[in-house]
């Protein structure tokens, strides 16, 4: 479980996060949603320790991240898996080597054992035939799946995903969403996903936090987001014509 208390972050005069508190539960997919510029990415980077923050605290299973020594921070980071928006695969390594990378850095496994483990994980993300390809030879969807495989290969306790569906077609996006959801439940890990894709919200939103102008504007789940009266959330959720029409149809049915 990850607990965030009263998090503040500024860049110069721009106050980006204005006191956010949240709890991200174990074994659940926790979604952070909001418009572009709402502070989602900055919030995620604060959670990951990539940005320092001025005020507040972040606890990973009771341990305050900022209070840890450099060595303990390093150990903690070895328990974190991250799927970046652009996949962030290492260009010079093959897909298999990319997946093996965390094992090479943090375990004492023999090369064959690492290869076996990588291939098991690649099979889990349906990429068993792609291990010798270079990242540049893989499609966007494949790259995302490799990034997921790399993130989970070392059995992380926490999985972070920054817009895992961006740039993907709707069908592939659903495959990626379901994969993350299944992995979260199978391994009982704490997953935090940064997204503005409403399909993801409908598919896998166990817990949802809505950010607006650096503040938490709403919190709920996929079951409650479509029933909320919060105008800020409804304005965001029904901003697309598709969802607008679905809502109109539901309202017609109810009336």
């Amino acid at each position: 479980m990850i607990e965030v208390k009263n998090l503040h972050k500024s860049f110069g005069d721009a106050h980006i996060l204005k006191g956010i508190s949240a709890t991200f539960h174990k074994g659940k997919t926790n979604l952070i949603i909001g418009q572009s510029g709402s502070g989602k990415s900055v919030f995620l980077k604060c959670l990951l320790g990539l940005y320092d923050y001025e005020q507040g605290r972040i606890e990973y299973d009771g341990e305050v991240f900022s209070n840890l020594s450099e060595d303990k921070k390093r150990d903690m980071r070895a328990k974190i898996g991250m799927v970046f928006q652009g996949s962030a695969l290492f260009d010079s390594l093959t897909i298999e080597e990319n997946v093996m990378f965390p094992l090479r850095m943090f375990t004492k496994l023999k090369k064959d054992e690492m290869r076996d483990r990588a291939n098991i994980v690649l099979k889990r993300v349906n990429l068993e035939d792609a291990h010798n390809k270079m990242p540049s030879e893989a499609s966007g969807g494949m790259q995302k799946r490799v990034a997921i495989a790399r993130a989970i290969v070392n059995n992380p306790k926490y999985l972070f995903c920054d817009e895992p569906n961006s740039g993907l077609d709707p069908k592939t996006a659903i495959v990626i969403d379901n994969l993350i959801h299944e992995i979260t439940e199978e391994n009982n890990i704490t997953t935090v996903i940064n997204t503005h894709d409403m399909n993801s919200v409908m598919e896998i939103g166990d817990n949802i936090m809505f950010l607006r102008n650096g503040l938490k504007a709403w919190e709920g789940s996929k079951d409650t987001i479509f029933k909320t009266d919060n105008e800020v959330v409804t304005d965001f959720v029904y901003s697309s014509n598709l969802f607008k029409k679905v809502r109109e149809a539901i309202l017609r049915e109810h009336s």
Binding site: L48, G49, R77, I80, M82, Q85, G86, A88, D91, M105
Partner: peptide
């Protein structure tokens, strides 16, 4: 640019 350095940092490298 492609966040590969961020990926290393997140891993604690």
């Amino acid at each position: 640019v492609t966040e590969q350095i961020d990926a290393l940092e997140v891993m604690g490298i």
